[in-house]
């Protein structure tokens, strides 16, 4: 990985204990993230795509240091932030901000929208009083909200407007990286387009990097530069967007693409769906390659050997014994 990386994640592992029995002893563990490495450059969008339970949101939370990793390193601008004491972490917090799927649940219902957006500015001591108000007003304008709505409360905004508020709040402290976890999944199509356009505009204007987490392949294809496909805690394929969609190598990526619906009635009978069955429980992932139980190409070796993520072409990484 080059020095130009803004964020670098190395061999990240996060296990959650499963407690059970009368004494609530640990009876097992969920390997939510099981050895994941990637890097994000300045101004770049890396998409993390996968189905429920694949660990994509856990990675987001770990990068934000909302939860501590079990093992592995997280480097921000070349500096290891994994084991920083809380005081030293403070300065780094400003550099990584987040946007949630449901911004409403992260907003204090008793505070005005202007206070919510201005809070990080004052917390980090970047502005005070009138200065904060001016900055908040310009942020409102930038994300497409009327500055006179600063006095309104979160419940008075529509879903799309609340997401704009969430974006304004994340943007307020001039971060380098924004972790966006399903930011448009709860929005209607017409509003989703507005928010995606805004996110792209802001990225180009401020040179922001995004770690964009989503289950929606079409959204991913629209907004990402590179995409990592996850399955049960591991990255199975990582490539530039175009490579991934045009020449997917991992059978799971192929399966995801074959399963996605397209707004074109003529395509409906041409496709065959590749995978059957459910995603296995992350508490008991299959041995070897996690995907072998659903993979149409699996051979005996796949059941015992976990394939490493290998670079099969420049920038194209695949974890499959057969490809």
């Amino acid at each position: 990985m080059s020095d130009a990386a803004l964020l670098e994640v190395r061999d990240l592992v996060k296990h959650f204990p499963i407690l059970g029995g009368l004494l609530q002893r640990q009876v097992g563990q969920v390997k939510a993230v099981d050895g994941v490495s990637f890097a994000i450059r300045r101004g770049e969008t890396l998409g993390l795509v996968g189905e429920s339970g694949c660990g994509k949101s856990t990675i987001g939370k770990t990068v934000l240091k909302l939860i501590e990793p079990t093992a592995g390193r997280i480097l921000l601008g070349g500096e290891d932030v994994t084991e920083l004491p809380p005081g030293a972490m403070w300065a780094h917090r400003r550099r990584i901000q987040t946007i949630f799927q449901d911004p409403y649940s992260s907003m204090n219902p008793r505070l005005s929208a202007g206070t919510i957006v201005g809070e990080p500015l004052e917390n980090f001591g970047l502005t005070r009083g009138r200065e904060t108000d001016d900055r908040v007003a310009s942020l409102f304008t930038r994300v497409g909200l009327r500055p006179d709505s600063m006095r309104k409360f979160a419940h008075e905004f529509s879903g799309g407007q609340r997401q704009r508020l969430g974006i304004a709040k994340a943007l307020s402290v001039n971060p380098d990286l924004i972790v966006a976890d399903e930011p448009v999944s709860a929005l209607d199509v017409s509003v989703q387009a507005q928010v995606l356009n805004l996110l792209i505009d802001l990225q180009e204007e401020y040179g922001l990097a995004y770690l964009f987490i989503s289950h929606d392949l079409a959204v991913m294809r629209h907004i990402s530069h590179r995409i990592a496909v996850m399955y049960l805690g591991r990255i199975v394929e990582l490539a530039a967007k175009r490579t991934l969609f045009e020449t997917p190598k991992h059978p799971y990526t192929e399966a995801l693409l074959s399963a996605a619906t397209a707004p074109d009635p003529k395509r409906r009978r041409q496709r065959k769906r590749i995978v059957q069955g459910d995603v296995p429980s992350p508490a008991k992932p299959p041995p070897g390659c996690h995907f072998h139980t659903r993979c149409p190409y699996a051979v005996a070796e796949c059941k015992v050997t976990a394939p490493p993520l290998r670079e099969v072409a420049p920038g194209h990484h695949v974890a499959c014994l057969l490809r």
Partner: peptide, 18 residues
């Protein structure tokens, strides 16, 4: 308004506006 999987996403390396 919908992003699409079945058409080329980028035009001349730029992400188009929805």
């Amino acid at each position: 308004a919908i992003p699409r999987l079945d058409v080329e996403a980028d035009i001349a390396g730029k992400r188009p506006r929805l």
